[in-house]
Amino acid sequence: MAVLEIILVVFLVFSALMAVRFDEELISIIFLSIFSLILTALYLLHKAADVALAEAVIGAGLNTAIFMSAISQIRHGDSD
């Protein structure tokens, strides 16, 4: 149990650093999605099912869709 938790925490920090480090927005969004997924696994490991469900649904699902539509609007230019 402890080994799994340490591995998950290391990957959590790694994905957060990668999300900050890249200049491309798309890669940052994908790494934020991975961050939410690892955080969901950590919450489940600590038996917090409610927070895990909220994190999975909001962090990995909704946030990604909204960020994608936002950067799609930015790249389409500022036509009207």
Binding site: A65, S69, S72, Q73, S79
Partner: peptide
Amino acid sequence: FYSMIQKTF
């Protein structure tokens, strides 16, 4: 979401 996608996709 609906008001954000109006000009995209």
